[in-house]
């Protein structure tokens, strides 16, 4: 079963095209990252799925059906910013959410405990710090233990401890078989927790699918010798080489993931009469990959 099927979805704000014919599918049980820089249309897309924004074209399905209100009751969603009644406490706000979702109030204490707000659960929302507001929003999404979670920038405003807590929370929810759709501009966040990814840029979908297919990692080896040009020329004959370039006084050689063997590279150079002054294996960072994809 697919949790979310997006089909040619578009959205215009006047002349600005916030989303341009985006299509992709979120299968059940995946942790689906929606990656994109600020203003790429992530929140707009989720806003349409949650019926707070109206699309200008295309459509979407939830649970393989035409979307309706009961679908949203089965999903726990944090969209953009925590939105709560400022004069009500955490408990009072969650009572409203529970009632809308047609669930009992018995789960409120549990989610408050999970997001670490038990000490302040009766203070008014207006007295919360940004991080606490974010925690309450995550707690609200967890209310009633929904099968699908939609989290838009879930670690926004959290301190490093909070970020780590939320990450492990997401991973434990994923291991329980829940489907998680997570929008983020934080690459390492997506890399660490997601199984699938869709990359958006200026409202266009530029890639989507299995995270290991989209964000293919390569081994990057940095080498240096007294004569860089000679080193580069010699390395063109290295087996299985993917690419080669001189960058910042080192030669960068890309090899398929897991194939770089420092010993054999060193021997190869020495056999070809070049003595290396520098040899280092570098994992290609996701950030580089992301910049490559979006530029």
């Amino acid at each position: 079963m697919n949790i979310l099927t997006i089909d040619n979805l578009s959205k215009n704000y006047g002349k600005i095209q916030a989303l341009q014919q985006v299509s992709f599918t979120v299968p059940k049980g995946t942790v689906y990252g929606i990656l994109g820089p600020n203003g790429s249309g992530k929140t707009t897309m989720l806003g349409i799925v949650m019926d707070v924004l109206k699309s200008s074209g295309g459509g979407f399905k939830l649970f393989d059906e035409m979307p309706n209100d009961s679908h949203r009751k089965r999903m726990g969603t944090l969209l953009e910013t925590p939105n709560f009644y400022h004069y009500l406490s955490a408990v009072q706000n969650l009572k409203i959410a529970a009632k809308i979702k047609q669930r009992g109030e018995d789960d409120i204490d549990r989610v408050i405990e999970v997001v670490g707000l038990a000490q302040r659960k009766n203070s008014p929302f207006s007295s919360y710090s940004l991080g606490m507001k974010q925690r309450l929003a995550i707690g609200s999404a967890l209310l009633g233990n929904p099968e699908v979670l939609v989290l838009d920038e879930p670690t926004n405003g959290l301190d490093p401890v909070g970020i780590a807590e939320i990450r492990s929370l997401i991973m434990s929810l994923a291991s329980q078989g829940k489907t998680i759709i997570m929008a983020s501009h934080m690459l390492d966040e997506v890399e660490k927790v997601c199984t699938h990814v869709a990359i958006l840029k200026y409202g266009k979908l530029i890639a989507s699918g299995d995270v290991n297919e989209i964000l293919v990692n390569e081994d990057v080896v940095e080498l240096a010798a007294s004569n860089l040009d000679a080193l580069k020329n010699m390395l063109t004959s290295f087996p299985n080489i993917l690419s080669l370039q001189i960058k910042d006084k080192v030669v960068q050689m890309n090899l398929p993931q897991g194939t770089a063997n420092m010993e054999s590279i060193n021997k190869f150079c020495f056999d070809n009469n070049i003595v290396l002054t520098h040899l280092q294996l570098k994992k290609k960072s996701l950030e580089t990959k992301f910049l490559e994809l979006t530029n």
Partner: peptide, 19 residues
């Protein structure tokens, strides 16, 4: 208007209330 100011109208809809 408070619902709009604090975007709780959005939250209500997101939580499953119909427009």
């Amino acid at each position: 208007t408070n619902e709009f100011t604090y975007k709780t109208n959005r939250q209500n809809i997101i939580d499953g209330l119909s427009r």
